[in-house]
């Protein structure tokens, strides 16, 4: 019988208990302000809809640059994440601003097209100016036990990325078990992913704290054995600042200070930005402002 690559076992009940313990910490007031700003600077502001248009992408880029017009000192978000068709436009607007352009590629979200086409798509978005590529793994191959194909495809995409950073989406909602999540994380890291990412946002459940914890553990074990730091991006389902702080608490206690930077941690989200903005305002005004008082992206 073929034996797949070995990966550490994961205990779902114990991981869930540990993950929930991070939501019981109280963070110091001044730290909270800094952390809300950090969370904002770690956000990949995202629009991935069939109805996306150039107008929508323009609006999103402006939102990325000006998260809150009433607080000009806020940090900008880390990146704007769009479909391939809009990469050139986003790149032209964000050029020189420090905000990265990320694009989903590889037939997002299913990945169900021939590898050659997926690679072509990756080359296209990089040529159009994408700084970061968010690929999806071949879940069909993974779940049928064909791990070499999963790994080979990630390596091929990494090659096609050239200088662009590669985020590997595991789509954990389809992998279902935490053992799968751990194995897929290990494969993605070994194959050259710069980041590992939970979800496309198109499958429920998207990011959860237990899933993210297992991925952080894979990153930590890789760091312990190689000294190489891989980044993490939970995506989908994180829309509240409070939850984002729980994730940061988990990040801090699992990987430590070195990972507390947008270079190594991102939130894939859209509505999170406005809740962060409103919470940061509240730190100064004690008022949680109405939703119509924050701008749309």
């Amino acid at each position: 019988m073929y034996k797949g690559p070995s990966s550490r076992a994961v205990d779902t009940i114990a991981v869930t208990a540990r993950a929930s313990s991070f939501s019981k910490r109280s963070i110091k007031r001044e730290s909270k302000d800094a952390l809300l700003r950090l969370a904002l600077s770690m956000t990949d502001l995202t629009t991935l809809e069939g109805k996306d248009s150039e107008g929508k992408v323009r609006a999103l880029c402006q939102k990325a640059l000006h998260p809150d017009s009433s607080q000009p000192d806020l940090p900008t978000v880390a990146a704007v994440c769009v479909y391939p068709r809009f990469v050139a436009l986003a790149a032209s607007i964000l050029k020189g601003t420090g905000i990265k352009v990320a694009s989903v590629a590889t037939s997002f979200p299913s990945g169900q097209s021939p590898l050659a086409l997926r690679l072509k798509e990756v080359e296209g978005v990089v040529a159009d100016g994408a700084d970061e590529v968010d690929m999806v793994i071949n879940r069909g191959a993974f779940l049928s036990g064909d791990y070499p194909t999963v790994s080979k495809e990630i390596k091929a995409v990494k090659m096609a990325c050239g200088h662009a950073h590669l985020k590997v989406i595991l789509e954990t909602g389809e992998l279902e078990t935490l053992d799968h999540v751990r194995l897929a994380s290990d494969i993605a890291i070994q194959a050259g992913g710069d980041f590992i990412k939970t979800s496309t946002g198109k499958v429920s459940p998207a990011a959860t704290m237990p899933v993210t914890l297992v991925m952080l553990q894979a990153i930590r074990d890789h760091y312990t054995s190689t000294g190489v730091r891989i980044g993490m991006k939970p995506a989908g389902g994180i829309s509240k600042a409070k939850l984002a702080l729980h994730y940061l608490m988990m990040l801090h206690e699992t990987l430590g200070e070195a990972w507390m930077t947008p270079d190594l941690f991102r939130f894939g989200a859209s509505s999170l930005v406005n809740d962060l903005v409103r919470q940061i305002r509240r730190r100064h005004s004690s008022v949680y402002t109405a939703d119509y008082d924050t701008t749309l992206g």
Partner: peptide, 10 residues
């Protein structure tokens, strides 16, 4: 920047 001091929450 990322001071993770916890507030004393007695």
């Amino acid at each position: 920047m990322t001071d993770f001091d916890l507030v004393p929450a007695p």
